[in-house]
């Protein structure tokens, strides 16, 4: 049942992840200075989602996992998005 193949990430790969995360954190901070109106939360969540994707893909080795495991994560993310949409239906139509 075990399809897992061992994989060791390079330090360079970790460094790239770190750099990307620092850069995106800077963008998150800068976004607080810009008034995006109703899109504020959507944009900040988008940036956060990109950060999460980078962490999951490279740092947590999802890239090297089976398709089944990847689909579980994608399903979880889809559930999260659906919950957000349902929540914001209240805010947009209240």
């Amino acid at each position: 049942m075990d399809e897992h193949k061992p994989h060791i990430s390079s330090y360079l790969s970790h460094a790239r992840v770190l750099t990307a995360l620092l850069f995106l954190t800077l963008i998150t901070v800068l976004l607080t200075w810009i008034d995006l109106g109703v899109f504020t939360i959507a944009v900040t969540l988008l940036v956060a989602s990109v950060k999460a994707t980078i962490v999951l893909t490279w740092f947590m080795h999802l890239k090297f996992e089976s398709a089944f495991t990847r689909w579980i994560v994608i399903g979880t993310f889809a559930l999260f998005v659906l919950i957000l949409i349902v929540t914001f239906v209240d805010y947009f139509f209240r």
């Binding site: 349902v86 239906v89 209240d90 805010y91 947009f92 139509f93 209240r94």
Partner: peptide, 10 residues
């Protein structure tokens, strides 16, 4: 609580 009509329906 005062949530939107469409939310209540949903």
């Amino acid at each position: 609580t005062g949530i939107s009509y469409w939310s209540r329906w949903f």
